[in-house]
Design a protein around this nucleic acid. Structure first.
Length: 198
DNA sequence: AACTAATACAACCGCGTTCTG
DNA sequence: GCAGAACGCGGTTGTATTAGT
């Protein structure tokens, strides 16, 4: 029987390592990605000499080793943006991460699950109470809700399909350019570095 | 000091989508 | 056009660390 920290790769039948990455593995992976590029993960996994599957290599690179990864606390602005984007996009973490330079989908997903989902629930409960306190989170949450409500009531834009309850992301973002742009300016952050296109 | 619960985050897993031969 | 391989995403789990009792 294979040890607990191994897994058998379905395609090669090889027994692969799993679990936490060591500094040595990180170095090997980083070097191999430099040579072969961050695309052919099967090749990277093979050429690196690591006993890891391509999937694992990709994940490690994307979430930890990639250049320009921003580590550390999520700022107020970032948190604000995550909340707004989640309201619009739901659990589409990679899309949300694409809007936050240096942040990974995994990091945002973790942050949401451990911090924000709880905050939102607490806030929702408080909002049911009269004379709710005006916390920054409540304000931003309300602002987003208001923006969406205006869309619904105005009916000028049909991002929300009132019959089906469906939401069309393309009505809020323009994905045609690299990155994406706010179509709805009301949801743009103050001082947002990505320009609003009109 | 020891134990338990809560929290944070890295990594794994399964599945849908896209690519390639 | 099809099948298998590879990729990418979101959900979930595992574990180390911290806080509370």
């Amino acid at each position: 029987m294979a040890p607990k920290n191994t897994v058998t790769d379905a395609s090669t039948k090889k027994v692969m390592s799993k679990g936490a990455w060591t500094a040595e593995e990180d170095n090997k992976l980083a070097h191999c990605v430099e040579v072969h590029g961050a695309k052919r993960w099967k090749t990277v996994a093979l050429k690196s000499g690591l006993n890891r599957c391509g999937k694992s290599c990709r994940l490690r690179w994307m979430n930890y080793l990639r250049p320009n990864i921003k580590r550390g606390n999520i700022s107020y602005d970032e948190e604000d943006l995550i909340i707004r984007l989640h309201k619009l996009l739901g659990n589409r973490w990679s899309l949300i991460a694409g809007r936050l330079p240096g942040r990974t989908d995994n990091e945002i997903k973790n942050y949401w699950n451990s911090h924000l989902s709880k905050k939102i629930i607490d806030q929702t409960q408080k909002e049911k109470m009269p004379d709710q306190p005006s916390t920054p989170l409540a304000t931003m949450h309300q602002k987003t809700s208001d923006a969406i409500q205006v869309e619904e009531e105005g009916g000028a834009r049909e991002a929300w399909n009132l019959e089906t309850g469906n939401f069309d992301v393309n009505e809020f973002f323009d994905f045609s350019a690299e990155g994406f742009y706010w179509v709805d300016k009301s949801l743009q952050l103050d001082g947002d570095s990505v320009a609003h296109r009109s």
